[in-house]
Amino acid sequence: MMRYADSSRRPNFSKDPAVVRLHGRYLLYYSIPPHGDGRTDDGWGIGVAESHDLDNWQPIAALSPFGLYEKKGFCAPGAIVLNGRVHLFYQTYGNGRHDAICHASSSDGVTFERNPGNPVFKASGNWNCGRAIDADVVVNGDQLLLYWATRDPDFKQQLIGVAAAPLSSSFGPNDWQQLCDQSILRPELPWEGDCIEGPALFRHNSVLHMFYAGAYNNWPQQIGCARSLDGVHWQRLSDKPVLPNGAPGTWNACESGHPFAFTDDDGSVHLFFQGNNDMGKTWFISRLRVLWDEDKDLPRFQL
């Protein structure tokens, strides 16, 4: 099984994967932790690695912080290629209820231009605290749907929401319309604890599906799956995780979490996710190919 971890800032530490294919290579974006050496720009950041087979990855870059809104850190990227450009949707970090979604784009997948309206989206409504993190996007007709995690007003439960912007727009703050006046998916099952986060969108048989992370990190966090006909109303496929944490002693014994669903040019879907076995001292990213058990109508996974 593929396991990747960046060692540029802290040994074996990569979280929150997002993957695209651009110009004949695969690019992996992920969260990297602070340097920890007292640097003035010492906050969470985003690393970039490349591969030609989805299994063997080499780090090639790290995005530098930009503007006051990224001063405390930025991380948890979601990525998509539109019209030959990589679009990153990522969060500010370290601002509590004020963390919000930012946008940047790139023609080469490495050098990014920030949206001048950053941050471009924050949650609204009395059902949430205003925070928006863990972005993922998917094309739906002539719109781009943006999924994000927030918390309830008491800052206890992590919840999922959705917004939309025209595909023809610049994805600035005036382009997004929040589509929900309550959470579209919130923790209800025992294994989900007080948290649903890390929405990861893909299609199966032309129907929109979402992998999601249930429970906070190392609770253990595990991965569930839901489907929707309209992108707003969601139904779980099972009351159990579709990808649980590993057995004691295995590399992901503490967590299988924060999914990302990458759809390749041939239509194959690949689940990238994070795991560890030391309560978060290290983090690895791994990959499984998504197949389908048609009898049970559930995803299954292949190395």
Rank of each mutant, 00 (worst) to 15 (best):
D6A: 10
R9E: 10
R10E: 11
K15E: 09
P17D: 02
V19Q: 01
R21I: 00
H23L: 09
G24S: 11
R25A: 15
S31D: 03
H35C: 07
G38I: 07
I46A: 03
D55L: 11
W57M: 06
Q58G: 14
A62P: 01
A62C: 14
S64E: 14
P65F: 07
F74C: 03
C75N: 02
G78D: 04
I80Y: 10
Y93Q: 07
R97Y: 08
A104L: 05
G109S: 13
F112Y: 15
E113M: 09
G117Y: 06
P119W: 03
V120G: 02
G130T: 04
I133D: 04
A135T: 12
W148R: 06
T150S: 09
R151S: 10
K156H: 15
K156Q: 15
Q157C: 14
I160P: 00
G161D: 02
Q178E: 13
I184W: 04
L185W: 08
P190M: 08
P190I: 10
W191I: 06
L201C: 11
F202M: 06
N205S: 15
H209M: 10
M210G: 02
M210S: 11
W234N: 05
R236E: 13
D239T: 14
N245D: 08
G246M: 02
C254R: 02
G257A: 09
H258Q: 09
D266Q: 07
D266S: 11
V269I: 10
V269C: 11
V269G: 09
Q274N: 08
Q274G: 06
N276G: 01
W283L: 06
F284Y: 07
L288I: 02
R289E: 05
W292V: 07
E294N: 10
L298F: 08
